[in-house]
Design a protein around this nucleic acid. Structure first.
Length: 307
DNA sequence: TGTATAACCTGATCGC
DNA sequence: TGCGATCAGGTTATAC
């Protein structure tokens, strides 16, 4: 499932293969992937055709490509969210269409570049479960992290900074958590609290920090907030170095290759296995209509007076 | 206002 | 073998 490291792997692939190229044609194969774009498929196609793709950006699980369009001073961005099963592939047009191909962008040669060797000519958006999608959104000020100096798509303006951003510090996380009145994992999964964390890396980071998922946010000390942030960063950097986490063909990079971090997971998807740290047995519990994995010895349930 | 939950969606897997 | 139920989970709208 694409979380921050997987989206970053995709961003780097788009940067390498698609940035600086003009969109020559847009084909919307399934309008459901434009569900969040209120103007509809025709406007999407019209506004995107002829635009030049800029350097792709990311916050949390949101990926966007600023558009440079001679005819449109508003400079919108192409926003891509992979949802549960979204993929972005850069392929040659001769490659057979994928079963769940939703949107195809035909790309021209890189503008201003020298001789180019048969660059793949299509950017394809594929999505089995259709939780993801594409849309166009104007860029605006970064209200979530005013000091960043970045431009953020309006549709992602409500998303908090992610753990790999410089504006996220121990003090920032401490204050954010102190203001909440909920469980730790619930807060980590809330993208308006901190972005980019999904079920996999929430469980892995909580294990690394030896914290139970139901620990109350307002009881976190400054030192514990620092430990949690450190754990989030460590898990995500390791996943990034491994090319992301793939359980099946649902997550691949832009060349269609899977990541290897699944082999390094400590608790996620490992119920009944031995905890590598203490020898305890990893447990799975139902949580928020999904699963939560943890070691009951390393991550003891908080006392009732700390809930 | 802040928090919790249902709905969206498809394919794999399981039990009968 | 085939059918229905269940599960996976990120985001958003809605309920409380």
């Amino acid at each position: 499932m694409p979380e921050l490291p997987e989206v970053e792997v995709v961003r780097r692939g788009v940067e390498q293969w698609a940035a600086g190229r003009r969109v020559e044609q847009v084909q919307v194969h399934d309008a459901r992937s434009l569900r969040r774009f209120a103007e509809g498929p025709e406007a999407f196609t019209r506004q995107l055709t002829g635009a030049v793709l800029g350097e792709p950006q990311r916050r949390g699980k949101f990926l966007w490509i600023p558009l440079r369009n001679d005819h449109d001073a508003a400079h919108p961005a192409l926003v891509i969210h992979l949802g549960m099963s979204g993929q972005v592939l850069i392929e040659h047009s001769e490659a057979p269409a994928e079963k769940h191909l939703k949107i195809t962008l035909d790309l021209g040669e890189r503008i201003g570049a020298g001789p180019q060797h048969q660059l793949p000519s299509q950017l394809r958006f594929i999505d089995q479960r259709i939780f993801g999608g594409m849309q166009l959104s104007p860029l605006g000020p970064d209200t979530a992290a005013p000091g960043s100096g970045r431009l953020i798509p309006e549709v992602a303006a409500h998303i908090a900074p992610d753990p790999l951003e410089e504006t996220v510090t121990t003090e920032w996380l401490f204050q954010v958590m102190r203001r909440r009145r909920t469980g730790l994992k619930r807060a980590l999964l809330d993208q308006t609290v901190i972005s980019g964390v999904g079920n996999i890396y929430a469980d892995e980071a909580l294990w690394l920090a030896r914290m139970h998922y139901a620990r109350r946010t307002e009881t976190l000390t400054r030192a514990q907030a620092g430990l949690l942030l450190e754990s989030l960063r460590e898990v995500m950097q390791a996943a990034l170095a491994a090319g992301g986490t793939s359980f099946d063909a649902l997550y691949v990079n832009v060349n269609g290759a899977s990541g290897y971090f699944e082999r390094s997971l400590e608790v996620y998807g490992r119920p009944g296995r031995e905890c590598s740290r203490c020898g305890g047995t990893v447990r799975r519990e139902k949580f928020m209509n999904r699963s939560s994995y943890f070691c009951p010895i390393c991550q003891p349930r908080p006392r009732a007076d700390r809930w």
